[in-house]
Design a binder for these strands. Structure first.
Length: 556
RNA sequence: GCCUCCGUAGCUCAGGGGAUAGAGCAACUGCCUUCUAAGCAGUGGGCCACAGGUUCGAUUCCUGUCGGGGGCGCCA
């Protein structure tokens, strides 16, 4: 990679100068080489001279001179300049752009991937919706975010496991309410005048589940005791919900490697065991009939209950057991992707992990901010219990998987996301996903034209690329060359929106190129070179959209 | 009260220790006999909330203030 090569040259230049005694500094600084916003400042620029100035005890521009006088990079650098307060701007030989295109053509679908992860085992846990209702729109953001973070890390050479934690503890209040709700609907479906329980789940889908149970089993459960019936229904309904969730997520382009049941942690004794471990390690104690995690020892505001005075373990106890299990499975990095209502759980979860003797820095918790639904400028309320949820499946049916994913991924996870249903449903041209996909369709159209005219598309490595020199061509190649860096930065920072942004930028640059530079023209040499360029753009766009889980249509 | 995210163009949001702060939408003006006009080019529009601090340099980092979203259970 050209950037690394240049950075290495600068480092060598500095160490050489130091050896000669021309300059003196302590540690070699991290060389920051970036693509300047303004093309008039060259292909790459570095602030190394300014960073070193103080330590070296000379003015930045003088340091820059020292760097340049010891630089041996004539093979790639055409010229350099010292600018402004001490920037060094590099103007590379045009062949670096040709090399970039050749690399894309050679690597194809692999372009953008790397091995920085070196097979490190990493687990991404996301969505983890309760198994007592369908996946709704608010889960969509977590689903898209976790999925694309996983894809990016995988592209970076990490060994990624996508995991869904199923909060199916049968003794939990929410599962019991769910079971009671299904039971009430079952009785109603059989014609009984039966009241809904307190805090019932009101959604239509509960009625559907009850009807399905009636259809399949009739009234045979009436012979059971009420408790037995509720337990049976909880199980049946949970299974049905899990299947539905799997299907809805699959339709959204998300597949999990592991569906991890909380209940198994209780049944296998891992929850009880983790409490014992915490007690042994001195981080759990009993007080007023309950067992407490001493999370304050790790910076939490207050200690948290692990076991209630009625003997039931809390969610935190199960979660501690779950995270211990994750680390015991050998993951070297564990990522939890949670909604904004969980931010208060970061401190206690990390505390639990630390109390168990695991390294809390191996646990990264991503909190994505709220999704708010708007329909015609009005905010749509979303309450699961009240039953007025908007389902992810409905959204996907209305706007399609591609648009839905792109919308969810466009914004930084730190920002709220306002999802305008009307806009998304209207399939409006404002939708940026069309803009990006259109660029790909146009590329394919050019390639079809070439085929039609009997002009073979030659790979960039086997084509004379010197005819490329138009401003629009140059900026397109530069953008294509950036892609691997973008994937690395977005992936390591867990920031999928950088990738959607990249796609939009690339599409914009391509559309400009398309308007300014006719590919299938009179000059065969130019046509060949542009075809190679366009084909490289196709590869990069496909790879980028592929990481986002969004299709790259060849016609629109 | 405590925690957390946000505050950048009319709107929705990117960016981010550095050289003239960006995109989309909205407004206005041009561009289709030629590879898809779901496109392109151009114009207007900004005390980057405010006040201190760190720095050679702050819109960016730190502290505080103000404003907005969300969260603070022996619920999950």
């Amino acid at each position: 990679m050209i950037r690394e090569k240049l950075a290495e040259s600068i480092r060598r230049s500095l160490t050489d100068a130091q050896t000669e005694g021309v300059i003196s500094f302590g540690m070699l600084p991290e060389i920051e080489l970036e693509v300047p916003k303004n093309t008039q400042f060259g292909d790459f620029t570095t602030n190394a001279a300014m960073v070193l100035a103080k330590e070296a005890g000379m003015p930045p521009r003088k340091v820059a001179e020292v760097i340049l006088s010891h630089l041996h990079a004539q093979d790639i650098v055409e010229r350099t300049e010292i600018a402004g307060p001490g920037f060094i701007n590099f103007y590379l030989k045009p062949t670096w752009l040709h090399d970039a295109l050749c690399r894309i053509a050679t690597q194809g679908a692999q372009y953008g991937r790397s091995d920085v992860g070196q097979g490190t085992r990493i687990q991404v846990e996301f969505v983890s919706a309760n198994p007592n209702g369908p996946i709704h729109v608010a889960h969509g953001r977590g689903a898209a975010t976790g999925d694309v973070i996983s894809s990016m890390l995988s592209a970076l050479g990490f060994d990624v496991t996508r995991e869904f934690y199923v909060n199916d503890a049968v003794n939990s209040k929410q599962m019991q309410n769910f079971g009671k709700s299904v039971h009430a609907r079952y009785m109603q479906a059989l014609g009984h005048d039966f009241p809904m329980p307190e805090d019932a789940y009101q959604g239509e889908y509960v009625i559907d589940i009850a009807k399905d149970i009636v259809k399949e089993y009739g009234d045979r459960f009436l012979s059971m005791s009420v408790e037995e019936r509720i337990r049976t229904f909880t199980d049946l309904a949970k299974e049905q919900m899990l299947e539905l969730q799997k299907k809805d997520l699959a339709d959204f382009g998300v597949k999990f490697d592991v569906w991890f049941s909380e209940q198994t942690l209780h049944e296998s004794g891992k929850v009880a065991r983790v409490i014992e471990i915490l007690k042994e390690r001195g981080y759990a104690y009993e007080k007023s009939g309950a067992v407490w995690l001493k999370s304050t020892a790790f910076g939490d505001d207050k200690d948290r209950a692990l076991v209630r005075s009625n003997g039931q373990p809390t969610y935190i106890a199960a979660d501690a057991a779950y995270h211990l299990d994750k680390f015991n499975r050998g993951f070297e990095k564990v990522i939890d992707c949670w909604g904004p209502d969980h931010h208060g759980y970061i401190a206690r979860t990390k505390a639990a992990v630390a109390a168990l003797g695991c390294d809390p820095s191996k646990l990264d918790i991503i909190i994505y901010q709220a999704v708010r639904l708007f329909a015609g400028g009005e905010m749509v309320m979303m309450s699961k219990r009240a039953g007025d949820v908007v389902l992810l499946s409905e959204l996907v049916a209305e706007v399609g998987k591609d648009a839905a994913r792109f919308f969810f991924l466009m914004r930084s996870t730190d920002s709220n996301l306002d999802f305008d249903l009307e806009l998304a449903k209207s399939q409006s041209n404002d939708n940026p996903v069309y803009y990006v996909q259109y660029a790909h369709a146009r590329i394919c159209s050019i390639l079809r034209k070439a085929e039609e005219m009997g002009v073979p598309v030659r790979r960039a490595c086997d084509t004379d690329l010197t005819p490329l020199g138009h401003e629009a061509e140059i900026s397109l190649i530069k953008k294509l060359a950036e892609f691997p860096d973008t994937v690395a930065e977005a992936g390591l920072a867990y920031e999928p929106h950088r990738l959607t942004r990249y796609c939009q930028d690339l599409a914009a640059i391509f559309h400009t190129f398309y308007t300014e530079c006719r590919v299938m023209g009179e000059d065969p040499a130019l046509t060949n070179a542009r075809l190679a360029l366009v084909d490289s753009a196709r590869i990069v766009l496909q790879n980028a959209l592929g990481l986002l889980g969004i299709s790259a249509p060849s016609t629109m």
